Computed example of a mutant assay.
Amino acid sequence: MILENKGEKVRIGLFGGTFNPPHLGHQRAAAACVRQLELTRLLLIPAFVPPHKFMPAGSATPRQRLEMTEIIARKIPRAQVCDLELSRLGPSYTCDTVEQLAGEYPGADFWLIMGTDMFLSFHKWRQPEKIARYCRLAVVAREEQEKEKIQRQQIFLKETLGVESDVVSCPVTVLSSTQVRQDVMDGGGESELDEDVARYIQSHGLYQPSSRLEELGKAVREHLTEKRWRHTLGVEEVAASLARQYGVPEEEAREAALLHDATKCLDIQEQLKLCRQYDIIFDYGEQNTALLHGKTAAALAQDKFGSSPQVVQAIARHTTGDRDMTTLDKIVYLADCIEPGRDYPGVDRLRSLCRQDLDQAMIQALSDTIEHVRQKGGEPDRRSQEALDDLRSKKENGK
């Protein structure tokens, strides 16, 4: 898309974030950027799952975050919403976004807008030098005491990465989406939100306290490492997205994702103890003990958390697959393979397949896994091969 502005240079601001929810702090910062940078257009870009953090349980869906962002865009001069990153199942890397937008808006000047914390860590981002080729940075300084740190970082980024940057002054009350969500849960938060966003949150029942998913998340998190918990939240968000696309109850997908690795951090002796407690037959073979947590987590989901048979089965099958997999089974299996923290050869191709054809994505994922195990000198679990054969047969017969 080429923008015209009476012969003048087109100036575009890129304002990304989770917008979970968008609040008055976002609106004030965006309006200040439009005014002080003399922007032709401001693109508000909600992320699907940002690479630097994971969406907390009970968050608004990507579609709901998009719709709330559209509400505030109507109230910010020259602003519009860009859904580019919501179309990705993988993480929302800024370097990819700015490259794509530079191709869509040839000849435009870009400013990437961010808060102080993000600016101070910019050199640690993925391919910051690539971002610098396409954009100047615009850091929103909300407090006077931030400016000295910002100036030092400006010098550092200029000398090390050739980054050009500008400071936008926006002396407003510091707000965070985390605090706004908590205030809404506590029965307040209206003063921190646009009135139409507040009504949207209320009408959709967002950010309500003590939901089942929140309770499950709290229970599971106590038994996982920080890395494993981040993985779990990534699986939850992808599973929810796939559930919406393929017509599966989102609540079931989120529950199965939250519980799928509930016993992953237990050692083999603790796993075997659960096998005895729940009469689980250990038939994986010594080399495949890492797969056992699927069955033990499923047993806990049924016994301790009262999960439905559909959820229990999806958890049990997420490590190996099996014959006659349901759509929920496939979603949990694939979400585990492609959550934003995964980074291996072929993952982007698999993410794309998941959006196009769930069965073909399963065939690809199972084939890759079986081949990987064999290359390492192992013997794939029989259920994985049976699942693959079953899917291929149904595909060939048009079922």
Rank of each mutant, 00 (worst) to 15 (best):
A257C: 10
L258C: 03
L258M: 06
L258G: 01
L259Q: 03
A262V: 04
T263H: 06
T263F: 00
T263W: 00
K264F: 13
K264A: 06
L266G: 10
L266T: 05
I268H: 09
Q269W: 07
Q269A: 14
Q269G: 11
E270H: 13
E270T: 05
E270F: 00
Q271R: 13
L272D: 09
L272M: 13
L272R: 15
L272S: 07
K273P: 00
K273F: 09
K273M: 09
K273V: 09
L274I: 07
L274G: 05
C275H: 01
C275N: 09
C275T: 03
R276M: 10
R276Y: 06
Q277T: 15
Q277C: 02
Q277V: 11
Y278H: 12
Y278M: 05
Y278T: 02
Y278C: 04
D279E: 15
I280Q: 10
I281C: 08
I281F: 12
I281S: 11
F282A: 07
Y284T: 02
G285W: 13
G285E: 09
Q287F: 07
N288R: 15
N288I: 05
N288L: 14
T289A: 12
T289L: 13
L291G: 05
L291T: 03
L292W: 07
K295T: 03
T296H: 01
T296I: 08
T296E: 03
T296F: 04
A297P: 02
A297F: 07
A298H: 02
A298S: 07
A299K: 06
A299E: 04
A301C: 03
A301P: 02
Q302G: 15
Q302L: 10
Q302F: 06
K304F: 10
F305P: 09
G306L: 05
G306H: 07
S307Q: 09
S308Q: 05
S308H: 00
Q310L: 14
V311P: 11
V311M: 06
V311W: 08
Q313N: 15
A314W: 00
A314E: 01
I315R: 01
A316R: 12
A316W: 08
A316L: 08
R317V: 09
R317N: 15
H318I: 11
H318Q: 15
T319G: 07
T320A: 10
T320Y: 13
T320K: 07
G321M: 06
G321Y: 04
D322T: 12
D324I: 01
D324A: 14
